[in-house]
Amino acid sequence: MKGAPDISWLALASCFLLLLIPLAVTAKLRLGLTRDLLVAVCRMTLQLILAGFYLGYLFKWNHPGMNLAWLAVMLVAASGSVLYNSALRWSTFIIPAFLALALATLGIVLYLNAFVVRLENLFEARYLIVLGGMLLGNCLSANIISASRFYQAIDHNRSAYESRLGNGAPLNVALRPYMKESLTAALRPGIAAMMTMGLVSLPGMMTGQMLGGSDPGVAIKYQIAIMIAIFTCTTLSISLFLLFTRRVCFDPQGNLRTHLVLKPK
């Protein structure tokens, strides 16, 4: 496979000139985003330079243990950011969030590596880290949406929830409407994305592969596989997350332990 032609650092610098347009718009309309925009661009640039650096080494060493360890680092960062951006309490949820994301991501990546890409080394850096990172990145927001929605919905509708329990519903039946609401909210964007894929949007991974010199016929196969993997990973990680947290978040009588679940307002 021949790679994409390199971009010189000077040529890349010329790309930053494009930012004058958003900067002009934010300044003109006084959006108050200038500072955030500049910080974000700097962070993005530095973080990616770093990523290019460590990925280069990881690909070169290609040590299974090292690759798994790196995936674990990504998982910790991912579960941390899920919680930081949600209404949920860090101390209650960090371990279940990590476990749910880890099981779902690792399970799906290994399946892809074994049965779809059919690698000899299932822990090959190029696939384990790249695919794993992609799954994680795409599961994250769905996890945030779904977990906070689930627990907030029960908290906001306490009286409806108690009515169900008080009329004899077992816990899983009483939780069903909230489960349904939070999962639909989290899964709907993924379904919408698949609906328009290839028509409205050309997905990043496929574009990247084609820029890198892959045949479009090969690129679409990877894209199809990754779309299915992302959707499955999202469903799996959310379900596991809710399953792992249920025991801690409800007392033995089925009441939501709000003080352990939600951040103080």
């Binding site: 509708n157 009286s159 008080g166 009329n167 409407p177």
Partner: peptide, 15 residues
């Protein structure tokens, strides 16, 4: 609770 019939004054039934 299985033997009970409970109606709360807030009358939230859900969605």
């Amino acid at each position: 609770r299985q033997q009970a019939g409970y109606i709360s004054q807030e009358l939230q039934l859900g969605t």
